[in-house]
């Protein structure tokens, strides 16, 4: 109970700080104060998306990894609780992947000129959404819960094999507009963005805050799935 409160308080403070810093810290050409962000030519205020867009796509990757881990765990233990954990990770991963796509698409409208034009990054996230979307179709098509859990575990393992390719490799070896693309000579690879110390600080704090938020959501989701399963077994 106590440890719970510490985590939640930390999350609230961190996320509030990230919101304050990410939205209100000024962009200046020559940074002098600790809270100044460097002005990146061509991006301007739009650069601030990095504090909210990158953590969401990062969490999508993490939760697909979690889905795979608990899928493997289920295959070894045959415990349906592990399947609930895997499903919870998949559901939240899907939410975060959609959030990353929508925020990215909004940003693209103003940075690149159109909401969607099949940049390598956009194409790869679209394929990834199709792959994981079909997992939910697979799950809803099977009634026997052991069979459903087994197939879903195997599918989540196989589909995670494509994640590193679609998230990390393909957008980086192809020419595109997204920061970090192969022909990107203005901004450089994602992590070497022209970030100064302050920008990096807010960015990593944002990653931490979003990760805590993710684990909290995951915890609540899998618990409610387990409770729902328990109740439906009781009354049928």
């Amino acid at each position: 109970m106590r440890i719970d409160l510490i985590w939640k308080g930390l999350l609230y403070i961190l996320m509030s700080f990230v919101i304050v810093g990410g939205i209100a810290f000024p962009l200046v050409e020559v940074t002098t104060e600790w809270y100044h962000f460097p002005l990146i030519p061509g991006l301007g205020e739009q650069a601030k998306i990095i504090f909210f867009h990158v953590p969401t796509s990062w969490l999508a990757t993490i939760s697909f990894l979690m889905a795979m881990i608990f899928g493997i765990k289920y295959l070894r233990s045959n415990n349906l609780d592990d399947d609930a954990k895997s499903l919870a990770a998949l559901q939240i991963g899907m939410v975060f992947v959609i959030l990353a796509t929508v925020t990215g698409s909004l940003w693209a409208k103003f940075a690149w000129g159109s909401f969607w034009h099949w940049d390598p990054r956009e194409t790869s996230i679209f394929v990834l959404m199709l792959i994981y979307g079909s997992l939910f179709a697979l799950r809803s098509a099977i009634e026997n819960e052991d069979k459903r859990a087994k197939l879903s575990a195997v599918y989540s393992i196989i589909s995670f094999l494509t994640v590193p390719f679609f998230v990390f490799i393909m957008p980086r070896i192809m020419a595109g507009l997204h920061p970090g693309s192969a022909n990107d000579d203005t901004v450089g690879p994602v992590m070497e963005l022209k970030m100064n110390g302050n920008m990096q600080l807010i960015f990593f704090l944002s990653l931490i805050a979003f990760s805590i938020l993710y684990f909290w959501l995951w915890n609540m989701t899998y618990k409610s799935i387990i409770i729902k399963d328990k109740l439906s077994k009781k009354y049928i």
């Binding site: 996320m15 509030s16 919101i19 304050v20 209100a24």
Partner: peptide, 12 residues
């Protein structure tokens, strides 16, 4: 900023 903080507080 204030609006976002209020929304975050509500969600929290």
């Amino acid at each position: 900023l204030i609006i976002t903080l209020i929304i975050w507080t509500g969600i929290f």
